[in-house]
Design a protein around this nucleic acid. Structure first.
Length: 359
DNA sequence: AATTCGTGGTA
DNA sequence: TTACCAAGAAT
């Protein structure tokens, strides 16, 4: 709850004034088109503006309307998303585009309550679209807003716990401007992004340093409180790149695991790194394949770090003679160089193919 | 409710 | 080198 002495009207006035003077001219702020706003919000989830901006422009160029996105193949959408990470965002966005077209006539629902029922839209994104595109007076609470509220009001609850989220939500509901909710939400987010930054904010120029709890008690670097993440797990990936002529064998990842929907090579995951040919003894299909063609090692260990996993990756290249047609395991299939280029791939796979000058 | 889902940048 | 961070959501 907002303390008795806190002046919500004054706060909103100063915040808006700060925003009008200091905000960045980001592309997706120049429109009230819910499609464009939705696209930007999905792209920016857990993603820096600098990283997401080129993707926003690419998507808008390829898919100018929700109808264009709905008509696209999921594979092409994932290919355009390649390099952004958290690929379920792209799959959910594509699914939702089709739903908007097929069930809503191409028009987005206009309230946060309805929007949040769509795939890929949680409380934050639904509120952002509802306020930016339709002017609904709902608070959009992202990581920036949690930080700003936590510092100004001295809220020390864990912002990632359910209890903490309720507390922040109740406060945010009292703060949101009913006069201009869109600018209020943009301003809170922007204020957190460029003034009330996570590490070592310059509080000397902050318009709220006279009312800020964190500034008064020098707790800028202690707030907000976030529960710590779990340990990073090690995994050992052994990739076998099977080549026949110009073609490579790839397969779509369909398991409930990282990189779902993307394409990679024949993969043997092991508890420890496989170093010598003797280590392959236990893998039947691998032995058969290695006898089919020439196998050589890419003498390098790739370390690929994800948010909760650290991959130790080794690549082997198997060249199959043109006259032979090995039985490919799993759902592997041969793709031409042009097809390989067009398939959505984890950034690691793309990097390796470029390093060996295949792509 | 705790985990899991990428990638790149920075201190 | 490690840890943290970046316009969160799904399970």
């Amino acid at each position: 709850m907002v303390p008795d002495h806190f002046q919500v009207i004054d706060f909103n006035k100063k915040l808006k004034s700060w925003y009008l003077k200091n905000h960045r001219p980001l592309l997706w702020r120049q429109t009230t088109d819910p499609y464009k706003i939705w696209l930007s919000e999905i792209i920016l989830q857990q993603t820096r503006v600098a990283h997401g901006t080129p993707y926003y422009e690419k998507f808008l160029h390829h898919y100018p309307t929700v109808f264009d996105l709905a008509n696209a193949d999921e594979r092409d959408v994932l290919r355009l998303w390649q390099g952004l990470g958290y690929y379920s965002r792209a799959r959910n966005m594509h699914f939702t585009a089709r739903q908007i077209v097929n069930e809503y006539g191409g028009r987005f629902p206009e309230t946060a309550a309805k929007l949040s029922k769509l795939k890929g839209l949680g409380n934050y994104t639904a509120a952002a679209i509802a306020s930016f595109a339709f002017g609904e007076a709902v608070a959009a609470i992202d990581g920036n807003v949690y930080r700003v509220m936590s510092r100004i009001f001295g809220i020390q609850s864990d912002m990632l716990s359910n209890e903490g989220k309720k507390e922040f939500a109740a406060l945010a509901k009292e703060l949101v401007s009913h006069e201009d909710p869109a600018t209020y939400n943009q301003a809170m987010i922007e204020f957190g992004a460029i003034q009330c930054v996570p590490v070592s904010p310059d509080c000397s120029v902050c318009p709220f340093n006279d009312i800020c709890y964190a500034y008064a008690f020098k707790m800028q670097n202690q707030l907000p409180v976030k529960s710590k993440k779990g340990a990073v797990k090690k995994r050992f990936f052994n990739y076998f790149i099977i080549q026949k002529g110009e073609k490579l064998a790839l397969r779509e990842r369909t398991a409930k695991d990282i990189w779902k929907g993307l394409y990679d090579f024949f993969l043997v995951e092991s508890a420890k790194p496989l170093v010598s040919p003797e280590d392959f003894a236990g893998y039947k299909t691998l032995n058969e394949l290695s006898q089919t063609g020439i196998i050589r090692e890419i003498p390098k260990e790739y370390i690929h770090v994800l948010s909760h996993q650290k991959l130790h990756v080794h690549f082997w290249w198997i060249t199959v003679p043109l006259e032979k047609s090995p039985d490919l395991p799993e759902n592997l299939a041969f793709y031409s160089k042009e097809e390989v280029e067009e398939l959505p791939k984890p950034i690691l796979i793309d990097t390796v193919l470029k390093e060996v000058h295949y792509l």
